[in-house]
């Protein structure tokens, strides 16, 4: 849904005359078959997506018991949101995660995409290498990194040891663990973003660059004056998508930090807390309230982004 809204390429021609014409082009039989064709998708969407959303909102007002029994408790869960210090901590962790991972990931992805948009030897190999983390299971990625990060027997601290630096406890030191996770998150998101930026770069007409060359522009000024402005729609798109998925970060933290970890309080994200309450403590009512809160936060942030885009996104 979000993708459709922000996709910069779609331009709606909202001319009533045109719309009328369009509608007349389809006969009643065409419409019938069109609905038949999309019915399987719509059914799935309604049963597995739209309906649960409303159910979640409803459950956020109940106290969950064993085996699907529950009782209505009104705003109790929402009152608890206000006083739950764990949750406030989790929101702070999530914000730190977003503020560090999203811009850095976008910056590095553009850099990699720009470098891989040139004609260099072994281009496909580089592109494959950068894309590999994307097609690897997050669980496998997390397991490998856990091993690399292991303070006593990990490769990372072994390498630091050769330089006679005593490496930290990457995943169990409460002051460091969150940054260790962010590092892996950035590493594993570059591939996906790079592909989108690459297609954005290739959509920029070479005539702009030719004209700039004639005017005597150098490589760097071409990048800042042509590439970046014309890439802003893509940056905006990647930004919105990354932000939403960063708000929902869970798997990396679950796999790399885990519940029995002294650093968990300073790393757990909003969704991790949702999982903990909902599935290990079986407080599904309160967990639903957290999900609703997260939904509202994402809604507001995305709305602000949509408003702000007018100031910096150029649809060339």
């Amino acid at each position: 849904m979000e993708i459709k809204q922000v996709s910069p390429q779609v331009k709606v021609h909202d001319n009533p005359k045109q719309r009328k014409m369009k509608q007349r082009r389809y006969g009643r039989g065409d419409l019938f078959w069109a609905y038949i064709m999309i019915a399987p998708l719509m059914l799935g969407l309604f049963i597995f997506y739209v309906y649960p959303v409303f159910q979640t909102v409803y459950y956020s007002f109940v106290e969950w018991g064993a085996f699907g029994n529950y009782k209505w408790t009104g705003l109790d869960n929402y009152n608890k949101l206000l006083t739950d210090t764990d949750l406030h901590r989790a929101i702070r962790n999530t914000v730190v995660y977003i503020v560090l991972s999203v811009p850095l990931s976008i910056f590095l992805s553009i850099l990699v995409a720009a470098l891989l948009n040139q004609k260099i030897r072994g281009l496909t190999i580089y592109r494959t290498l950068y894309f590999l983390p994307v097609i690897t299971m997050p669980a496998a990625v997390a397991m490998v990194w856990r091993w690399l990060y292991n303070a006593d027997y990990g490769l990372l601290n072994y390498a630091l040891g050769l330089l006679s630096i005593k490496g930290p406890h990457w995943l169990t030191d409460p002051n460091i663990a969150l940054y260790s996770v962010i590092l892996v998150a950035i590493w594993s998101s570059i591939g996906n973003n790079m592909i989108i930026f690459l297609s954005g770069l290739q959509g920029i007409s070479s005539s702009y660059y030719e004209a700039a060359s004639i005017d005597g522009a150098g490589t760097i000024s071409k990048f800042y004056r042509i590439t970046l402005p014309l890439l802003t729609p893509t940056i905006f798109f990647v930004g919105v998508i990354s932000l939403i998925s960063a708000f929902q970060v869970f798997d990396m933290i679950y796999m790399m930090i885990g519940e029995k970890n002294i650093a968990i309080e300073s790393t757990q994200s909003i969704v991790f807390l949702f999982y903990k309450y909902g599935f290990t403590q079986n407080m599904k009512g309160y967990a639903s309230a957290i999900a609703v809160l997260l939904f509202v936060i994402i809604l507001i942030v995305t709305f602000i982004q949509m408003k702000l885009q007018k100031k910096w996104v150029h649809y060339g």
Partner: peptide
């Protein structure tokens, strides 16, 4: 330590 036993 607890940290070490969490990692290994």
């Amino acid at each position: 330590t607890m940290a070490q036993m969490t990692e290994t």
